[in-house]
Simulated assay, not measured.
Amino acid sequence: MKTKIVSCLICLLLVSAPVRPVEKTAALPILEIVKFVTKKVIKAIDLRIQRLQNKTIWLQNAQKQVENVLSKLKLDEISEWTKRQKDLYKGYYEELAKVKSIITYYQRIKEITKKQTLLVQQYEKAWNLFKQDRNFKENELQYMEKVYTGILEQSLQNIDQIFLILDSFTTQMSDLKRLEIINKSADQINSNYDDLMLFNQQNVLLSLQRAKTKADVNQVKQFYGIP
């Protein structure tokens, strides 16, 4: 369902976006979708983590109460405990372990989503500079726009996988399968980020190569913050 919603948003944006040359203030249409979905994921994860942490505190307190009762009983009294009481203690322990495991998953997912946020930030920083760089022609900026759009679309697909992982906690998905999806998403996000950074570096290098004088080179370096 999440995938369909995101796909529909992309289609609507692309249809409504007029065909135009790259403008100095232009931003990729898909960027706002990526930002919106990424923020939504982080907000959902933070909310779930908070709820699980509250549940952890409650379970820990309940477990301590049971342990306190156990410490006050004699050996023969412990052996006379009813099965329900023993199962209750066992249930607290198992539920606490399960909750802590899910929190670990959520923390890992949040790290992946933060890398997605960093990808967007690096894109915006570089793209805003490239559009102001006089060393690039109009058709070259249009090519950059296509490449950046492709990278952002791929990263959005990775967010779809994260939604799938979040939904998996309400289904019968195994931990092994869930971990497999998490690792795959992390690898893909890292790959997208590396592709973006490499493309940025190549464009900066091209601008430096086109600088005709030493003063021009220094100006380009200053413009991109290169020491």
Rank of each mutant, 00 (worst) to 15 (best):
L73P: 01
I112W: 05
D160T: 05
L119F: 09
T25F: 08
L198Y: 08
T170N: 13
K125F: 14
L13Q: 06
I189G: 01
K212R: 13
L179C: 07
I49L: 02
L28E: 02
L206R: 06
M1R: 11
Q53A: 10
R48K: 15
Q154V: 02
Q85F: 05
Q132L: 13
E77A: 11
Q219F: 10
K64I: 05
L13T: 04
D87R: 08
V15E: 07
F163W: 08
V147D: 06
I181R: 08
P21V: 04
Y123K: 00
K177S: 04
L13M: 14
N128Q: 15
A97G: 00
I112S: 06
S16E: 09
Y92K: 03
N192P: 02
I103R: 05
R210D: 04
N54L: 11
I159T: 04
V217C: 01
V6N: 04
N68Q: 09
I109C: 08
R51Q: 12
W81M: 12
I102P: 02
K86E: 11
I57E: 14
I109V: 13
Y224R: 11
Q53C: 12
L119P: 03
V66N: 08
R210L: 14
I42C: 07
V69N: 09
N61I: 09
E153C: 11
D194E: 12
S185K: 05
I57V: 15
G91M: 00
S191K: 12
